[in-house]
């Protein structure tokens, strides 16, 4: 039986593993963390239908059954293309695994919001990222640092996305919808709270998103203000005073919020660059891996037997990631069948 090794046990890695196992391959997943599900594991609920993130992970994990081995807490130490066409995958404690095909599903990590120091993340008590807020939702306690119920909450879109100053010109795709989702959830939790979203553009590109945006305004009264935050300062009571330009109304606003949530963008996962160097894969200037052809060969690389899936090639929603991972599984199967002959 042929071996397929997958780097990353996130949504992409798990989905592809299930498909490949069903076709009849021996699948091994190498995961750097101690749990599966990747970034989604730290989420509470998902757009567009507010399903639990844990339920989604269960759904992608369930078909794996017994046939797939997941090695947690493993760091890739070497990746070598061998003479027989296989790939030697070296880890710290497992030795070298010989893979007939390798799927890179290393995913993304959130932009480090500390780098936008002007927003005060890590400095002010009540500045959070969307991931921090998800943890709060999971724990059921959405409270300020001092344990109070927030009465005013601001969401800042495009933190580390579409921002040339931090070197990320691209759109991270999912943050707009996430902000709409979280803003609505806050209002579900605290109907009396004032919620603001500060945005450049709202990119509601899939069918249900526009409805979510509409409901956020109509049902929940979330206020969308077009303009980037220019200053955030902490007051003595630990609320955050914001200076922002409302570019539609053409006026500057000073308002204070009890919680400021930064919608941090997607960056390539920290190990992606290392993996790319070891295998000689191409990265674009943002550091995401680039497939051979985005139309026809979106899961293939220039290196024979190495495939890509999920957000390691750029920001994606979860449905897109799942579709991409399935397509990668099909491509791997085609590749391995051809090699058998």
């Amino acid at each position: 039986m042929k071996n397929v090794v997958i780097i990353g046990a996130g949504v992409a890695g798990l989905t592809a593993a299930a498909r490949l196992k069903d076709i009849g391959y021996n699948v091994t997943i190498i995961e750097k963390k101690t749990y599966d599900g990747g970034n989604v594991a730290s989420w509470d609920r998902l757009f567009p239908d507010s399903r639990r993130a844990s339920r989604l992970i269960d759904d992608v994990r369930r078909p794996l059954g017994e046939g797939v081995t997941i090695h947690y807490d493993q760091r890739i130490t070497s990746l070598v293309k061998m003479k027989d066409g296989r790939i030697g995958v070296g880890t710290e404690s497992l030795g070298i695994i010989h893979a007939d095909a390798l799927l890179v599903a290393s995913g993304f990590s959130l932009f480090d919001a500390h780098l936008k120091e002007e927003y005060g993340y890590g400095i002010y008590d009540n500045v959070y990222t969307q991931a921090d807020l998800e943890s709060m939702f999971s724990s059921g306690k959405v409270l300020t640092r001092s344990g109070d119920i927030p009465r005013r909450i601001g969401f800042v879109h495009c933190v580390g996305s579409r921002d040339e100053k931090v070197g990320n010109r691209y759109c991270s795709k999912v943050c707009c919808v996430t902000a709409v989702k979280q803003a609505s959830e806050i209002k579900q939790l605290y109907p009396d709270a004032q919620v603001y979203c500060f945005y450049m553009d709202l990119r509601m590109f899939e069918l249900p998103y526009e409805d979510m945006y509409f409901n956020a305004q109509k049902l929940y009264g979330v206020r969308f203000i077009r303009g980037r935050l220019c200053e955030a300062a902490e007051k003595m009571d630990k609320s955050v005073i914001l200076k922002v330009e409302d570019t539609l109304a053409g006026q500057t606003l000073n308002l204070s919020v009890d919680m400021l949530v930064l919608m941090a963008g997607m960056r390539p996962a920290s190990d992606t660059a290392r993996i790319a160097t070891m295998l000689g894969l191409h990265c674009n200037k943002e550091g995401f891996l680039t497939p051979v052809d985005i139309f026809s060969r979106g899961n293939e690389t220039e290196v024979d037997g190495v495939f890509l899936a999920g957000t390691c090639t750029g920001p994606k929603t979860i449905p897109q990631t799942i579709a991409d991972a399935r397509s990668a599984a099909i491509r791997i199967d085609e590749y391995l069948k051809k090699r058998k002959k």
């Binding site: 120091e117 002007e118 005060g120 400095i123 002010y124 200053e231 955030a232 300062a233 902490e234």
Partner: peptide
């Protein structure tokens, strides 16, 4: 410096 709260603080 207003935009660098670490220094301001």
């Amino acid at each position: 410096t207003r935009n660098m709260p670490s220094i301001l603080n």
